[in-house]
Write a protein that binds this DNA or RNA. Structure first.
Lengths: 357, 357
DNA sequence: CTGAGTTGTGAAGCCGTATGAAAAATATAA
DNA sequence: TTATATTTTTCATACGGCTTCACAACTCAG
């Protein structure tokens, strides 16, 4: 019953063709090549024959056809605010590592903080039948009907697991460190409005500041304005702050990138970091340790966060009905480097002077 | 003939159901919703009826089924060495922008320079039926049977378009700049072996150096060793170089990230940049301008390169039989900032001394 | 009645998966 | 030995949802 197969056809061999060649039905071949539960009722000899032929003709099941039938694409959608340096790349390294181990690929889109895209992309990806979503620093407005894991999402949504940093602890580490160095007049840089971490971290800061008796002065609190993801983040706000007043000895930046911009602004204002102003960053991106001065910063285990989030997502996809935690908390770590130092008496005295106008 | 449709079914409505409800055949509905050429043979009134119903029932064609049929997935595979800061993010920003305008999404994988993955990933993505490939700094060993556009690929492969920087020009800009500042003893940092730019750029350097009479001394040429993508890239090699000799006044780094590491090594060795050693970077990543000292560097229009590469790829996918250029050349730009300066007589004198042991 | 529009459709794909049941082989009962 | 039950092995067939193209049905002018 064997019919010769021309191996040099342009398209890869299909299940049907292979079955014909073997004198079996597609059903049988399908069972065998998938090693499906039903395959154990196929004679061992037949199984071997099928597998040998599949190998010989390099049979690869068509992904689309299979996905169409099984409603699984082994693809997840990743939604991020932007392809930023530091944060994004570190998280994605972790995500990719885990996904590829488990046979998933991912489609990435960046919404740039634009509400229209935040609504549009989930639709687009749902159309593509992704098996699940990984949200990075992104808050969706409508629920999705596949598993979702969110990194730094902060808002609780039904069915969405959230992997996040312990912000209370972060605030504590940073503030206590500055406090111990003698800083009492601290400026704070908050994130962009759409940076989800920002508000929650800010609350933690307020709380801990009160606890150890650091007074938070509104005039020393600035917001990142630009939407770009470069040291531009921090530069203009700190430059402007320094132009109007110098009655602070330290600044706690929203992230390392902004901290680099802040340091530049400090230098450009003729001051020195840390001698005149100490700077604390956030994230511990890879260049933080190599910057001059190297950055004292709160490290987020970003790679690990990506990895764990991906792991949880895949589990939820594969076993949807088991119970899952709705939060995974990660612990920050204080990396003490050169950008923070003891308050100098000399600088402290500045505090007494009226702000530069 | 209208049959009521239960709108609250769990699965989205299918073409067939919609057709039944309209009392038309799936074929007709398909023609209309796709606005296919054949649709003009459908009465205007019918067309409107179909579109109205499609809208009402929120009909969305099933992507998988359609792709299965048309053999188009509107998905491209992007293969990069690593999710690196700087280079990768900037290129991808450009790529994403263009792809999303044209309705394509992309699957990204990073091979980390591992040969097994470089072979494996194209297969994996081909199985997923991507419509084309975008290679970033990656050289494939086997040809692919879909359109491919490569960024900084350098090796000519049949049917692969290559978007690349004019390395002759880059070398000229950097060396002439250093030359004009009086530098004659220049150290060079080459990229990792798998960094495709490295060799080609090096040849350009050799050539131009000879032309203007800069002697390239092998003992001043170092290689990036680690595979990581952080300032670690540059730090150890420069540290070691400085430990063994100090008879150079400038160093031309493989990229900005490495340059940041290099500057750190210079500082840690008790020297100053640029007063003692000038540093030239490459790429002009976003933090280059904010580093202290800010980086003199050769700017690559990375975002634009990504954009153009994506554009060309999409064109090639959609019109495969037209002729296309096999190279798109981009021009570098010299960004003069603080990390380079005039050779000081004082330093130059060091040159006469024997190297530090 | 013929030829030329106009409007629409039937049915064959695309390539697998899943399920109930048939066919073949073997075992058990009468 | 024949009939019946049981197990083993395999298959027919109905999807999944959409595209495509040759052709059908109808209308209308000439």
């Amino acid at each position: 019953m064997k019919r010769p197969i021309s191996q040099n056809q342009d398209r890869p061999i299909s299940l049907k063709t292979l079955a014909e060649h073997l004198g079996l039905s597609p059903a049988t071949v399908s069972l065998v090549v998938n090693n499906a539960p039903g395959a154990k009722s196929i004679a061992l000899k037949t199984r071997e024959r099928v597998l040998a032929a599949a190998k010989k003709f390099e049979y690869k099941p068509n992904f689309l056809a299979r996905s169409l039938r099984t409603r699984q694409t082994f693809t997840i959608g990743v939604i991020v605010p932007e392809f930023s340096e530091g944060y994004f790349t570190m998280v994605m390294n972790g995500v990719e590592e885990h996904l590829l181990q488990t046979g998933y690929l991912h489609l990435v889109v960046s919404h740039q903080g634009r509400p229209d895209l935040i609504d549009e992309y989930p639709r687009l990806l749902t159309e593509r039948a992704v098996d699940g979503f990984l949200l990075v620093n992104t808050l969706l407005r409508a629920p999705l009907d596949v598993p979702v894991v969110s990194i730094s999402g902060h808002k609780k949504m039904r069915g969405v697991c959230n992997a996040m940093l312990d912000h209370d602890h972060s605030a504590q580490l940073a503030l206590q460190h500055l406090y111990d160095l003698g800083h009492r007049d601290i400026a704070f840089m908050k994130g962009q409005p759409h940076a989800l971490d920002s508000e929650s971290r800010w609350q933690s800061i307020l709380q801990f500041a009160e606890k150890i008796g650091i007074r938070i002065r509104p005039e020393l609190c600035v917001h990142i304005r630009t939407n770009s993801w470069s040291p531009e983040l921090g530069y203009p706000v700190v430059r402007d702050l320094l132009a109007s007043r110098r009655d602070f000895t330290a600044i706690f930046c929203f992230n390392d990138i902004a901290a680099i911009g802040a340091i530049r602004a400090i230098v450009d204002a003729g001051l020195r970091c840390p001698q005149d102003i100490s700077v604390v960053g956030f994230d511990d991106i890879s260049s933080a340790a190599y910057h001059t001065p190297s950055l004292t910063t709160i490290r987020q285990p970003l790679r690990r966060m990506g990895e764990m989030a991906a792991q949880l997502l895949v589990k939820r996809i594969q076993h949807p009905h088991e119970p899952y935690p709705d939060t995974i908390m990660f612990e920050p770590e204080l990396m003490i480097r050169e950008s923070t130092g003891l308050v100098r008496q000399q600088r402290k005295s500045t505090r007494q002077k009226p702000p530069v106008e």
